Simulated scan of single mutants.
Amino acid sequence: MTRTLLNHRAEGPESAPPLLLGPSLGTSHALWDKVAPELSATHRVVRWDLPGHGGSAPDLIGPGATVGDLAALVLGLADSLGIERFAYAGVSLGGAVGLHLAVHHPERVTSLAVICSSAHFNGSKPWEERAELVRREGLAALAENANSRWFTPGFTVPRLIEDHRNADPEAYAACCDALAAFDLRDRLPEISVPTLLIAGRQDPATPPAHLREIADAVASATLVELPGASHLAPAQCPAAVLTALRAHFDGGAERGMEVRREVLGDAHVDRAQARQTPFTARFQDFISRYAWGEIWTDPTLSRRERSMITLTALVAHGHYDELAMHVRAARRNGLTPEEIGAVLLQTAVYCGVPAANSAFATAQRVLAEEEGDDGATG
């Protein structure tokens, strides 16, 4: 039976914001092996294979294919997974698909990252010649010199070279046809979603000037240039790519600070910020980015559930000053005094009666303050 959907791999919670990752010509979704698992901590990551690459059927496209045809396959995949709107990141041809989606289907794309790609690929002739060569001779010769096109000297990823060698020649040639016909320069000003552009400074295929051209035309664009990176930056410089993508898609410390204020209250956060020194600044940034920007924003658990877990952990370790702060946070997150009491009673069983006794005293004091009652704790 003919398959009609692109082969794909999904990672991360189904309830998390969706993020689609597109590959470069000649590679599979293995291009994202060192980046996707980390992104899946905060997103439902779906990485897909081009037709005839990896596990995708070669007959999904044919001669004369366009980037629009590939974009339609991506939308079909998203529809099949119940994904209406999504963030998108793509490399080279995968990045061109992202640009097409942002121009022609802006209602589907929430934010965009274009990596080592372009709004055009140096005219049609080189791609027409490559398509003709591949249809005539196959992919062995191209795979042999893939390292020089993809990476800086001395670096390689054998899995990706093997993917190149094993791609279907007709499907690969059809993807070359798509690159030959692609030129979106006149439409770039129409892109309105937040757009991140990542260029490899040593990329011979789509040098930084190609990404700067997009940055100059897209009002909401940010450009990052990676020293030491060639064409397949996610494989060669995964940490740098991951850092840039996280900041773009997650909001990083900014989003973390927003959630921190929502849970702990402005007064507490303002006091913490006022006490910050150069010595503690990195730790405060770590808390905002990781604890609040990644863990507390993960939609797998509700904030109510996270408050209950946090109260239990603080009792278990005897952190009663922090417990007072998180009793207030639990109230903001919707827990009633009765529910907080039930959580602390549970800790009496599993953390010990003395720990729970101190916890009840702390919680009662905080709840009394919240109610404007100066009654004694016991």
Results as ranks from 00 to 15, higher is better:
T4I: 14
L6I: 01
G12K: 03
S15A: 06
L25K: 01
H29W: 15
A30S: 08
W32Q: 10
R47K: 15
L50Y: 05
P58A: 03
P58D: 02
P58C: 04
L60F: 00
A65W: 05
V67L: 03
L70G: 14
V74A: 15
A78D: 03
S80C: 05
L81F: 06
Y88R: 14
G95D: 04
A96G: 02
G98Y: 11
V103L: 00
V103A: 02
H105A: 02
P106D: 07
S111H: 00
H120P: 07
G123Y: 08
E129Y: 09
E137I: 11
G138H: 14
A146W: 05
W150V: 11
L160M: 03
E162M: 09
R165A: 00
N166Y: 10
A167G: 01
A173C: 14
C176V: 11
S192F: 14
L197M: 14
G200N: 13
G200F: 04
D203I: 05
L211H: 06
D216H: 11
A217K: 02
T222P: 10
E225P: 02
H231Q: 14
A233Q: 07
Q236D: 04
T243A: 15
L245V: 03
D250L: 08
G256L: 15
V259A: 13
R260Q: 15
R260L: 11
A267N: 13
A267E: 12
D270N: 12
R275F: 13
R282Y: 05
Q284I: 01
I287R: 12
R289W: 15
A291D: 09
W296H: 04
P299F: 03
M308L: 09
A313F: 03
V315T: 01
G318T: 08
D321W: 06
V327Q: 15
V327K: 01
R331Q: 00
G334N: 07
A342V: 06
G352H: 14
S358P: 08
A361W: 04
A368E: 13
G372A: 13
